[in-house]
Computed example of a mutant assay.
Amino acid sequence: MADLKAQFEQAQKDVKTLTRRPDNNDMLLLYSTYKQATEGDVKGSRPGMLDMVGRAKYDAWAKLKGTKPDAAMKQYVDKVAALLKTHK
């Protein structure tokens, strides 16, 4: 667990070094796995129709409902590792 947490923290630093912006699907995956790992299941109500970005983020996070924080951390670390290979 401590090793995964260290990898997760390093991945948060590494993602800021990307030279190209990931596509929207990758950004939503990064957002949702980070939120699931740090805050757990989504809270609050779904944003309205006019808040398309907020709605997409909420939906991506809601899809991970029930995912354990460790599993979300692992997904985040794996995605950042893949992005570092293609966006550096």
Score class of each variant (00 low, 15 high):
E39F: 01
A62E: 14
K57R: 15
K57C: 07
P47V: 03
W61A: 10
Q36I: 06
R55N: 10
P47I: 04
A60M: 10
A56W: 08
K43N: 03
G44L: 04
K43L: 03
A56H: 06
G48M: 07
L64W: 12
S45H: 02
R46C: 09
K35H: 01
K35M: 14
Y58I: 04
R46H: 06
L50G: 11
K57Y: 04
V42Q: 07
D59G: 03
K63D: 15
G40D: 04
T38W: 01
G44H: 08
D41W: 07
W61M: 09
T38Y: 00
G54F: 06
K57E: 12
L64C: 12
K57N: 10
G48E: 12
K65V: 05
G54I: 09
R46M: 11
A37N: 01
K43F: 05
K57A: 07
R46A: 03
M49T: 11
K65M: 06
M52F: 10
G54V: 09
A62C: 02
T38C: 01
M52T: 14
D59A: 12
A37R: 02
D59Y: 05
V42S: 02
D51A: 12
R46Y: 00
L64E: 11
D51M: 09
W61P: 10
K43Q: 14
R46F: 00
L50H: 07
K35Y: 01
K65Q: 15
Y58V: 04
Y58S: 07
K63Y: 09
G54Y: 06
D59V: 07
A56F: 05
G44F: 08
D51N: 15
R46K: 14
K35R: 14
A37K: 00
Y58C: 08
E39V: 01
M52P: 00
A60Y: 13
G48S: 13
G40T: 01
A37D: 02
D59T: 13
E39N: 08
